[in-house]
């Protein structure tokens, strides 16, 4: 295709992506270097019979005018990145100096908002992704053995948790595990502890969120693996059977190797989606025990009346960096493949 023609074909989509994805990243970066204006203070002196008294007041008008003139705020350099709400260098150094053992030090660190969110996001990604891969494969093999008549309805039901709006799906589960909901109330009865609340304990909150994650994304790996199973060469399976391989062995040595290329694709998709976990935290209102990187950005922007653009920007930049790190192996591999094809 000629460069000129290519240009005209790609123009609409490229301009949409440049204007609303590439430039916003630049804008986020610039924002992250600025911080909200301080209030303009006026010091006035009022003198009475017993001497003069100085009072400091916020000049609302001047503050508003300043915000109007420079909506970005004042330049702050990389200070936002290192403050308490983000990388918190000072607090970590302080914790390192004052705590006795590693456990206490780590506890101090995980109390800092950014590290708390980062820990949850990474744990969530690291736990949910492999679980979904294994369980998805198991369900796919199971469905593959079903009579033909049942396959269609099974896939229909399986698609529901995946395609349902994440906010809505997590709300549905949240209402069920509520203290008065069916699962919550049943658990209370089973454990004999009427005050048991899945929302009150950090561990249970984490387990609940990850269960939601598995429930929500399992269908994706199931569907892809199921499609892969349809293309396993029949001849090889037959040959394995004739050679005396048990079903388990032919699964282990024929089917699974055939699915390995799919595995890369599925895990890439799952990693990307799990890393941006966000809606369940809103639905489960779990911010006291579990937050994610996406959620703290949302929270900064939500600060009603006075959004913290600088703070949100800094977290956003670090999240984007995280995504790039996560994707690097894939990018390098694709680059090699592309070169091999080209030459």
């Amino acid at each position: 295709m000629k460069n000129r023609t290519f240009f005209w074909f790609i123009l609409p989509t490229l301009s949409a992506m440049v204007l609303f994805i590439a430039l916003p990243i630049v804008s986020v970066f610039i924002q992250s270097l600025h911080i909200e204006h301080e209030q303009v203070l006026v010091v006035s002196e009022s003198c009475g019979p017993f001497g003069c008294e100085q009072t400091t007041e916020v000049d609302l008008e001047a503050s508003a005018a300043l915000r109007e003139a420079q909506p970005l705020g004042r330049f702050n350099g990389f200070a936002t990145y290192t403050n308490r709400a983000h990388l918190a260098f000072d607090e970590i150094a302080e914790a390192w100096r004052t705590t006795e053992d590693t456990g206490a030090f780590l506890r101090r660190v995980f109390d800092l908002p950014f590290y708390k969110a980062l820990t949850f996001t990474l744990t969530y990604t690291a736990v949910v992704t492999p679980l979904v891969l294994v369980l998805g494969l198991a369900v796919a093999v199971g469905v593959n053995n079903l009579p033909k008549l049942l396959k269609g309805p099974t896939i229909f039901v399986s698609l529901l948790p995946f395609l349902v709006t994440p906010l809505v799906g997590s709300l549905i589960l949240f209402w069920m595990v509520d203290g008065d909901g069916i699962i919550g109330a049943t658990l209370q009865r089973l454990t004999g502890d009427p005050s048991l609340s899945l929302k009150a304990s950090p561990t249970l909150t984490w387990i609940m969120l990850m269960t939601y994650g598995v429930w929500h994304t399992l269908p994706f790996s199931f569907i892809v693996f199921y499609a892969g199973l349809q293309t396993v060469p029949r001849d090889t399976l037959e040959a394995a059977k004739i050679d005396g391989a048990s079903k388990w062995q032919s699964m282990r040595y024929v089917t699974v190797p055939h699915l390995v290329p799919l595995l890369t694709f599925v895990s890439l998709m799952l990693l990307m989606d799990n890393f941006r976990v966000f809606e369940p935290i809103v639905s489960f209102q779990s911010q006291a025990h579990a937050t994610s990187l996406s959620w703290i950005i949302f929270n900064d922007l939500r600060e009603s009346g006075n959004p913290l653009y600088g703070s949100a920007g800094a977290t956003s930049m670090m999240t984007i960096l995280g995504v790039v790190i996560l994707l690097t192996p894939v990018l390098i591999r694709t680059w090699r493949d592309f070169n091999r094809k080209a030459h």
Partner: peptide
């Protein structure tokens, strides 16, 4: 792969 909310803070 970028979380959508990171872009929103730029908008």
């Amino acid at each position: 792969a970028m979380p959508h909310i990171t872009l929103v803070s730029g908008y």
